[in-house]
Each structure stands twice: as structure tokens, then as C-alpha cells.
Nucleic acid binder design. Structure first.
Length: 470
RNA sequence: CGGGGAAUGGCGCAGCUUGGUAGCGCGCCUGCUUUGGGAGCAGGAGGCCGGGAGUUCGAAUCUCCCUUCCCCGACCA
């Protein structure tokens, strides 16, 4: 039965399409307080998959999980000048608790460099205590003026890593290791998002950092989204919080620290990178539900076969869900699973049963084929692998085809209307960034021609990637 | 904070100009018929019309005040 489109088409109104998907795929609702969100079970299951994959990689990189308090003394924030200046406007501050005005207000953490720095100072005495590699999964609060579900919410969930090292070089290597081995690899191999890894300009740098590195992804509308960052904090926080150690020659030294994080923003990135007019498309490596087995009709034999089929797939290690809600029409259920972006749908009805087949609907190719019930696990696994590769290929093609090389600010601003521009950083001059900002375009990051990270703010030959961004 | 909108069943909206029993679509509940791409029909449930004060015989509708939300701008790891 022909109906109006399930979602506002992307080409008609991309932001509206995004809102529609969030609502109809049951990912999240707006919370009662402005800028907050309720993450619904399906949306949360996507986040849990992200957490599991990122957490595994963080641990492989040697960091250990810990937990620090939500409340931070206001005075802590003030100890690092740039840090407090950067965060003050967006702090939520508690001044009354237990029915009394507090002696010293406490801030709800916008990030935890300060409180973790305080404790690192206690725990680090000797060079033998370094490196100290910590990570925490937590919620943070930043009172943003323009909230947008998943992309910029007043409260969000994230992981924040904090490390201390004996030398600048050691800290830098670790910050880069996290950037590449945890973030970039996770985004490419699991999220199927070909992020550009680069260095932030001084203007875009994290408040209190000496260097901020980033993973930037292109969304379906050509805008950029910062998916994750890794910072070298130099000795700024070590000095503010007195993180000192005795080196092997008996001299007191300040440590060198780093911090790095990815957040629930990645869920928004995932939606806008792979989603289409039929809904979400979740890469199989991430999908909380990789396959849904759907009973087409209310028929005992069909339902029973669906159960064994789902069991068989689960035994083969596939994340599978059974849909035998036969009181709901087949079309409705098919549409809903498509909205939710489940990679493979196996539709089984009486007809299939007699023929010994099942209908495999592929979310990525749109194809519906009858496939043998025999050896279904292998067939499904192959489809999942192919889908994963297809999403990465599509996202890579889009990024490449919508990125152009330019040589002037004007050309860069024009190119950024539909995609990204690459422009020699040196050619932008001192006012280049301000000039671009007039067209709502920013330098997303700097990269070297061979794709490596620039060693400094004005490394010879560095290319600026400029774009509009979320 | 500047400029513009809007607050009416769960969601989306109409009604307001010209005061007179609060409506529509979707969703929800029940029943029957359906079920291979958003099912159909019938019957139901659900509202102090954002809050307060006024005008009036009578206010969703007119007047004033307040609150909240949305959009554009500024702001933004």
C-alpha cells in the first residue's frame, strides 16, 4: 500500500530527516530540561556496542578504568587559566545543597582534567609510577546554547582518558596511539566511517591543551562532525595540580599529561553518515541486532521454524532477534526494522517453508532474495561482511568526491557549501580563519599531504581541511 | 542577550479575525475480518485549551502580566 514517505527525505530537509529518524527508530526523546535527552533502549543498545568496542581497545592500549566524582570544587577549575576561561560559560554550578548555601560552589563536571589531576598528584611520586593511564566512563554536563539530540546535549555520556607521562615525547606518542589505534580504527573498522585524522588549529584547540588532535567525519549533507579528540596537555595541568615525580637522577620533574574522549555524539554521527530515506543503516560490526527473523504469517509451523532458525544463528555467533508479532502486519514490521537499520531481515512464511528457503532482505543493497535454509549462517555472515565493506566504501566515496582542493579563501568558502575543501594552511594567512568564519566555515583540522599529523601549528606543507560543521 | 514565532488529548495540528456545548489526523483500547511492504470496518477511552489577573450573562477565542518552548544570530572539545 503506497503511503507518504516514512521519513522526511534527506534532500528535502536534512535536519528534519535526522529528527524523524531519532524519533521513529526509537533512539531518543528530548528530556524535560532543555538540552537533555532520554536515550531509549534501542539507542542505548547502540551506545553499549560502541562502549564495548572502544573499551576493549582502550584496555588493549594499557589504560585502566576508574571513576571520579561528578561534583568538582569550583576552585579546581580556576587553577588552569585557559581551562576555566574555556569552560566557564557552559558550567552548571551547584550553590545550594542540603537546604543550605554551600561555602564553596561545586561545579557539575564538564570534563575531569582538574579532579583527576588532583589525584594524579597524590598517586605519582616517582618515575616508576609513570605512565599512569586512566580512563573513565561517565556523564558530563555542558550548558550549550544550541542543543541537538546526540550531537550537542547539555548532558552526555562519554569516556574520558587521562594519562601522565615522564616526557613530552612519551605523552605525545600515547595521545597519538589512542587517536589511531583506538579512535580511528574503531571508527573505520566498526562504524565504517572513514575519518580524517588531523591537528586542530590554535583557535580550535581544547582549553588548556598544547595540542589537540581530532577525528573528523563527513556527514550525508557534506558537513563535518568532530567524532573524537585526543589532547596533549603539556605540563599545564601538571603545574596547576602539582603532578610531580622524582626522576632516576633524583630531580623533581613535572609530568606531561594527555586527555582524550569520545561521546554519545558518535551515535548522531553514525545516523548522519549512513542513514538513508528509509532510515538508519547500522554497520553489521556495530549493530546490536544484526539479523531479525520475521514470521510472515500466524502459522505454528512457520513460527516454530523461525525459532529454530534464530537459535541456529545465535549459535553461530550472530546477534539475532526474533519477530513473531504476527498480530502486526508484515509491512509495518518490515518498515520498522528498516527504520532501525537492522542489516539483514530473514522473512519466513509458509511458501518459503515448503520450498526450503527463506527470504533474505538486505538493508544495504535493498535486495530481497530467496536463499536456502540449509547453511543459512554462512549466507548471513557473508551478507553482513559485504554490508560492512559496502558502507565503508560508500562513505569513503562520498568523502572523496565531495572534497576539493582549492587555493583561496573564497573558493574554500564556496566548496564548503556542499562539502569539504583542502587548502594550503600557509596560504590562509593570519586572518584566514576569521575570514572563513564569516561564511560559517571552520578549519576542521590540519593534515600533512601524506595524511600524517603535522608536528606543529605551522608545519611546512600542512593542508587545512575546511568545512561547515555540526 | 538581539530579532521573529508558538503554547489546545500521547504526537502533529485546526478552531481565535466576528466570544455561545472543544474538533481533526496519527497513536491507544475492544471486537470482527485481515496478515508475502506502513491493513480495513465498527465501537470506545483520553482535554481545568501553559499560569495568573481582568472585561463579559458567558472566554480556547478579547485585554494585561508571567512562564516555557521553537527558529535565526551571537556562543560551542
Amino acid at each position: 500500500m503506497a503511503k507518504a514517505p516514512v521519513l522526511t527525505p534527506q534532500s528535502e530537509d536534512f535536519p528534519r530527516w535526522y529528527q524523524d529518524i531519532v524519533a521513529k527508530a526509537e533512539l531518543a526523546d528530548n528530556g524535560p530540561v532543555r538540552g537533555t535527552m532520554v536515550i531509549r533502549p534501542y539507542g542505548y543498545s547502540i551506545w553499549e556496542q560502541m562502549q564495548a568496542e572502544v573499551d576493549r581497545r582502550i584496555k588493549r592500549a594499557g589504560a585502566k578504568n576508574a571513576y571520579f566524582p561528578l561534583f568538582i570544587p569550583e576552585s579546581y577549575l580556576k587553577r588552569e587559566a585557559e581551562h576555566v576561561e574555556g569552560f566557564s560559560p557552559e558550567l552548571a554550578v551547584v550553590t545550594v545543597a542540603g537546604g543550605k548555601e554551600l561555602e564553596e560552589p561545586v561545579v557539575v563536571r564538564p570534563t575531569s582534567e582538574t579532579v583527576i589531576g588532583e589525584f594524579m598528584a597524590k598517586w605519582v611520586q616517582s618515575y616508576r609510577d609513570l605512565p599512569l593511564l586512566l580512563n573513565q566512563w561517565a556523564n558530563v554536563v555542558r550548558w550549550e546554547l544550541r542543543p541537538r539530540v546526540f550531537l550537542r546535549t547539555s548532558e552526555f555520556l562519554w569516556q574520558e582518558g587521562h594519562t601522565a607521562h615522564v616526557s613530552e615525547d612519551d605523552g605525545r606518542q600515547y595521545a597519538e596511539r589512542i587517536l589511531h589505534d583506538v579512535y580511528e580504527s574503531f571508527m573505520r573498522d566498526v562504524l565504517a566511517m572513514p575519518v580524517v585524522v588531523g591537528r586542530k588549529t590554535a583557535k580550535e584547540r581544547f582549553a588548556g591543551a598544547t595540542n589537540t588532535m581530532t577525528c573528523e567525519a563527513m556527514m550525508g549533507d557534506g558537513k563535518a562532525l568532530q567524532m573524537g579528540t585526543s589532547h596533549e596537555l603539556g605540563q599545564n595541568f601538571a603545574k596547576a595540580f602539582d603532578i610531580q615525580y622524582l626522576d632516576n637522577e633524583g630531580t623533581q620533574q613535572h609530568a606531561w599529561t594527555t586527555s582524550w574522549g569520545v561521546s554519545t555524539r558518535m551515535v548522531g554521527g553514525l545516523i548522519m553518515c549512513h542513514g538513508d530515506d528509509n532510515g538508519l543503516r547500522i554497520p553489521p560490526a556495530l549493530a546490536p541486532v544484526q539479523v531479525v527473523v520475521l514470521a510472515v504469517r500466524d502459522d505454528d509451523a512457520v513460527i516454530e521454524r523461525c525459532r529454530t532458525l534464530a537459535g541456529e544463528l545465535a549459535d553461530a555467533g550472530v546477534r539475532v532477534e526474533l519477530d513473531v508479532r504476527v498480530e502486526t502486519s508484515m509491512g509495518r514490521r518490515a518498515t520498522d526494522w528498516e527504520l532501525k537499520g537492522v542489516p539483514v531481515r530473514l522473512e519466513l512464511g509458509p511458501r518459503d517453508l515448503t520450498e526450503g528457503v527463506v527470504t533474505l532482505a538486505n538493508r544495504f543493497t535493498g535486495a530481497k532474495d530467496a536463499v536456502a535454509l540449509n547453511g543459512i549462517a554462512a549466507t548471513v555472515t557473508a551478507a553482513l561482511d559485504a554490508g560492512q565493506a559496502q558502507l565503508l566504501a560508500e562513505a569513503t566515496d562520498r568523502r572523496n568526491s565531495r572534497t576539493v582542493d582549492v587555493s583561496s579563501i573564497a573558493e574554500a568558502a564556496e566548496a564548503a557549501a556542499t562539502g569539504w575543501a583542502r587548502i594550503p594552511w600557509a596560504s590562509m594567512g593570519t586572518d584566514g580563519e576569521t575570514e572563513l568564519a564569516k561564511s560559517s566555515v571552520t578549519v576542521r583540522c590540519l593534515v600533512m599531504p601524506d595524511g600524517s599529523l603535522p608536528a606543529s601549528d605551522n608545519a611546512d606543507g600542512a593542508i587545512a581541511i575546511v568545512a561547515r560543521s555540526y
